[in-house]
Nucleic acid binder design. Structure first.
Lengths: 117, 117
DNA sequence: GACGTATATGCCTTGACGGGAATATAACCG
DNA sequence: CGGTTATATTCCCGTCAAGGCATATACGTC
């Protein structure tokens, strides 16, 4: 299902590379493996994970198996971060307010903006 | 940098629960742990991962440490799936077209490796 | 400074994950 | 049917992450 398997599948950089590769167009396994620098078994195993997550689907063409991206799970991902979109919209609003800088924000005290590590 | 750590951080369901919890409002560690049914050390370790991924930031209030969500990495996630959004838009368009005319999906032979990335 | 609270870290064990080599399955061709 | 190509699966192993327990650190109070 579209539970944690989706995140687990996308957690691996190789798998994300495969997904990005399939975004352009569907591809057979050998081409995927070569493009990502993966051995054939490893490629199949990654594709298995992506398939279980519903991220890709297969079309059999003779001996080759052509993998294509399935939009649905990524749409689910988009739906997941929908509530967070309002958050960074608000942060932009707060940034604008900081130019005005009045008191009254209990959950957001004025500090240095974007202190990365 | 903000590469795979973001995905790895969000791959864990407990961590996603923490993030969802912090979406409502910033919370101290004890409250997070109790809400997610996590032990205190486990909570701290998960928060450490989220912190390394840049997903949360801390504000020290006396002995308590109040964790708050940082919008930036989630915005990065949003940016990541931006190219895929066109994909499911197209699929909706294609679905609409299928009602109009019977156009099959072009099955291009994969003999043109176009490496990007 | 001793004590209590709140949080972080270290150690250890277990279980999942990824890679490699070998093997199995499936489809096509003669 | 035997052989070849394309892909999937199995087994083994090294690594890494997660949880529990104990402990260390930081802050506040007395």
């Amino acid at each position: 299902m579209s539970d944690g398997t989706l995140w687990t599948a996308l957690a691996d950089p190789h798998r994300r590379a495969i997904v990005a590769l399939l975004l352009e167009r569907p591809r057979p396994v050998a081409e995927i493996g070569e493009a990502c620098g993966l051995s054939q078994p490893s490629t199949s195993k990654h594709l298995r994970v992506l398939r279980d997550a519903g991220l890709v689907r297969v079309r059999q063409d003779a001996q080759r198996r052509v993998y294509a991206l399935d939009p649905a799970p990524i749409a689910a991902l988009d739906a997941w971060l929908t509530p967070y979109r309002t958050l960074w919209n608000e942060s932009l609003v707060a940034l604008g307010r900081r130019l005005d800088r009045t008191a009254g924000e209990p959950s957001d005290p004025p500090e240095d903006p974007t202190p990365k590590d």
